[in-house]
């Protein structure tokens, strides 16, 4: 937390700065939460439960990667939950009804998500709709299409190997879906931190006009960001289908708000220009640990909602306060 940098100390402080990348606040929150739950429930502190939590946050986490980028450029993507449902249903429809091989259907499912993102991006850049409205429209359209494909019915009957992607823990640790999640997180983290393209996203969110004058093609970047967010919703859809062993048109209802909450808990600013994958990971884990821990402790479902809301407010308050103190 100490960024009191006088020149001789600067070098020494560089290491923790890189390691935590300015996410010390949310990290402290996560650690406190884990400590609290370890005392409250005998079942919480175990490798198996930790793996369960990772398993449970996979879908939220994959969505949050895309949302982080969207929020960094100062946008918002309300459509991720519906796009997830549409990708999931088109994958199922292509495999079950159109008879395509499942691996191909999986790829096409991801592309469906990307296509939705492309539409959102074009609405925002060419039709100049505010991101909130453009993605709200796509949210409704995608949810409707997802239901239309099968007239609201879910699709079941995937082969065993598909479900095994989510359920079989290789070497006793990571299932394929969790591995995909972790790899995507690492790739996105490196992209946002060490690639010029990633750094440019921060400039666009900080001030699009400054970015444009600095030679950045703001439009192209904006569209691509929404395409990536849509494609990641597609990946999350495949993951969720494997986890549920079915495709459901009602999947991901309201998950966009959890996703936004996770990103903001992780220190991103809804105004744009600020955010990090490390922070988002912590935000996602805070939400996951909270739900998991409260279930393990056996807190009433109604009280759970109260606690989760309070923790979101607290987490973001601490973050804002520590920022202002700097």
């Amino acid at each position: 937390m100490t960024t009191e940098v006088t020149s001789p100390r600067a070098k020494r402080n560089l290491l923790p700065r890189i390691a935590f990348g300015g996410v010390a606040g949310p990290l402290i929150g996560l650690v406190l939460l884990c400590i609290a739950f370890s005392f409250a429930s005998q079942y919480f502190l175990s490798i198996r439960n930790a793996l369960n939590v990772l398993d449970q946050v996979t879908v939220l986490g994959i969505l949050a990667i895309g949302m982080t980028m969207v929020i960094i450029i100062g946008g918002i993507d309300l459509s991720v939950g519906s796009v997830l449902a549409l990708s999931m249903m088109s994958m199922g429809w292509l495999e079950r009804m159109a008879g395509l091989p499942l691996p191909l259907a999986m790829v096409l499912g991801v592309l469906t998500g990307a296509a939705c993102g492309l539409v959102s991006g074009c609405l925002i850049t060419f039709a100049r709709l505010p991101a909130f409205i453009a993605t709200l429209a796509i949210m409704s359209v995608a949810r409707g299409l997802a239901n239309l494909l099968t007239d609201g019915r879910q699709i079941v009957g995937y082969p065993d190997w598909f479900t095994n992607l989510a359920t079989v823990r290789h070497l006793g640790f990571f299932s394929v879906t969790v591995t995909v999640f972790v790899v995507l997180m690492i790739v996105a983290g490196i992209f946002l931190r060490y690639r010029a393209t990633g750094r440019n996203l921060f400039a666009i969110g900080g001030n699009p006009e400054v970015a444009r004058l600095a030679g950045i093609d703001v439009r192209r970047y904006t569209i691509l960001t929404y395409v990536v967010s849509g494609a990641l919703a597609g990946v999350a859809a495949v993951t969720l289908a494997a986890r549920l062993d079915s495709s459901q048109p009602s999947a991901g209802l309201g998950i966009e708000l959890d996703t936004i909450a996770a990103v903001v808990i992780g220190g991103a600013s809804l105004v744009g220009g600020v955010g990090s994958i490390a922070g988002t990971l912590i935000g996602v884990l805070i939400i996951g640990v909270l739900r998991n821990g409260l279930n393990l402790v056996g807190v009433s479902p109604f009280f759970q909602m109260v606690v989760i809301g309070a923790v979101i407010a607290l987490a973001v308050t601490f973050d804002t306060m520590s920022r202002e103190r700097k």
Partner: peptide
């Protein structure tokens, strides 16, 4: 009402 949530909860 969300089956994904329910899977996680039953896991817990």
């Amino acid at each position: 009402g969300d089956s994904a949530t329910q899977v996680s909860q039953i896991q817990d």
